[in-house]
Write a protein that binds this DNA or RNA. Sequence first.
DNA 1: TCACAATACCAAAGCGCTTTGGACGACGGG
DNA 2: CCCGTCGTCCAAAGCGCTTTGGTATTGTGA
Lengths: 350, 350
Amino acid sequence: MNLKELAHTLGLSQTTVSRALNGYPEVSETTRRRVLQAAEQHNYRPNTRAKALATGRAMTIGHVIPVSTKHEMVNPVFADFISGAAEVYAAHGYDITMSVVKDADEAGAYRTLAAKSAVDGVIVHAPTTDEPRIALLTELGLPFVVHGRASQVTLPYSWLDVNNRRGFQRATEFLVDLGHHRIGLINGLEHLDFAIRRRQGYLAGLAQCGLQPDAALMTTGEMTESYGYLAAGRMIDAPHPPTAFLASSIIVALGARRAIEERGLVMGRDISIIAHDDDLSYFRNDETEPMFTALRSSVKEAGHRTATMLLAKISGTDQTPQQQLMEVEMILGRSTGPAPIGLARERQRS
Amino acid sequence: MNLKELAHTLGLSQTTVSRALNGYPEVSETTRRRVLQAAEQHNYRPNTRAKALATGRAMTIGHVIPVSTKHEMVNPVFADFISGAAEVYAAHGYDITMSVVKDADEAGAYRTLAAKSAVDGVIVHAPTTDEPRIALLTELGLPFVVHGRASQVTLPYSWLDVNNRRGFQRATEFLVDLGHHRIGLINGLEHLDFAIRRRQGYLAGLAQCGLQPDAALMTTGEMTESYGYLAAGRMIDAPHPPTAFLASSIIVALGARRAIEERGLVMGRDISIIAHDDDLSYFRNDETEPMFTALRSSVKEAGHRTATMLLAKISGTDQTPQQQLMEVEMILGRSTGPAPIGLARERQRS
DNA sequence: TCACAATACCAAAGCGCTTTGGACGACGGG
DNA sequence: CCCGTCGTCCAAAGCGCTTTGGTATTGTGA
């Protein structure tokens, strides 16, 4: 059923039917009701493409999600992020289109999206410190909001970020307060901005407590479980092992935990862990006493908010770039405890 | 840059330019090259909507992904599945559009997609045993392929599934061979077809070995880590605890493992686990000696194959419904071992 | 040399919608 | 009584593309 047919069965012009459906005032209330009812009855939905073509608005948001060439991995946070964003889109009649691209040709993906005029706006995921996409999108004139920030980019742009720096600083200081002097950082890939900020927070925390950083206690990698396992294991087995870890995600923390337990140590007693927690739906760290002490910030809510910002930008409500910084919650769980005293610690390891 | 402008700058008609770009023969090779080059130079991409409107083909595949109303959870396998499917789509010039819907109104989502004629085909995720979407889509005439099967549906339709039944039967028999007589099944939600089949496999395995099933050893739930933890914990604490678990996913298995270790037991010695492993990119169970003994079947590959089937269906290559059954690989890891003898087991627990 | 077929191009219609620029009565004020 | 206004509707253009149904221009065989 299309407009023409619908108009014909109603004995009205397409114009009138279209106006009735779209809430324009030049239609009498009686005919509007008649139209609405007929539309409902025939399950009429305007053809998206025709509508988009006529209005010039695609009513579609693009998400281009990078899959790392290294591990062919797509970051599991996207599922939750998008589910949060999707609620907002749906409420405003927007569709989602996604392109999955090897991170190399991400720029190309945006170019194509813009050239095809397939979307009204996009969300930029996982920005690097000098994220080139920001300049590209500004140049293309395609509305966008960045999930995260790009420290080195000076152009004004809209973003929503988590206060990673503050969070990791707090976590570090918290661990030091518990007596931990050697804290291992199991960070994400450090060309990504969030990872840099986390490291900065970690370093600031150490500095605040008068501790020297140790390069042997800082690692970087793609945030898989194995990575957490290997990185933690390596540090534990090194000459001066840490007594605590800061893990960049729950999944990484699980790996670290595995490394700890495999060595007969007990998490929260022999070695503490604090994890950043994106509050993923299938991995809730929220029992009466959470498994991990964590810096929690819901990625789903971030999706929700980012989408809201983007739609505001598209509708022209927000002309000037907007920023939102979400603070993390620090959740106390079972993975942290006072640093073991040296001797006890040594006994554990032998 | 649109067709009109491009044609104008070239001093050609839109017809010719369009034909040159789309590989029609009524264009001289010299002009074709000229056109192609100009298009390249101006980064011209035909407007998706206009093209779709003119051709009647949306060049878009719909994925409607359900978010469970219960835990607001979106199944983490989608990320990998879609990344597999996306490669195929991209290679054939198709876009992806996704709708995220509370599982309640999934039917509505498909209806809308069809009425808007927004997609050329869809993939049906997570079918129930009597999946009503199959009848709906057949009625709507929208090409589709089911990822999974629907045991009770008699209509012919295309699907790709993993041999869950066989896998779980094998795993069960393997555990029995190791001396396990009480095996706990930590299954997914059993209105979903794959979960039913897994249970059937489990029961068949027990029967094959002459063992009676015990209702206390079978649980059902949404496949989160907490669920695995709680379900396993409950069984372990019951009067006649199992000596092995069959877990419906790696994430669930991690929960089970946590329950085991929290009780001072050792996985693979005191209690064994076999998990179904979707081979998720951020959770690879594939070190030299994998953490879990597992039934592995790559969900990314499933996405790849399902997408291929769907495109074949859309292009009309496959008129008759096609089926594909993927066998699981059984991977030996560290989570299984012989059943402990009664006494030793008791000593462990006290 | 002429007719006929390729060859290489073009004008215009059409996809399903929105939106501009009216038309046509009814109504009310001067 | 007439004119301007308002309310209600419609015809047609236009969004950017594809595709049908041409028209010139060239090459070919008789």
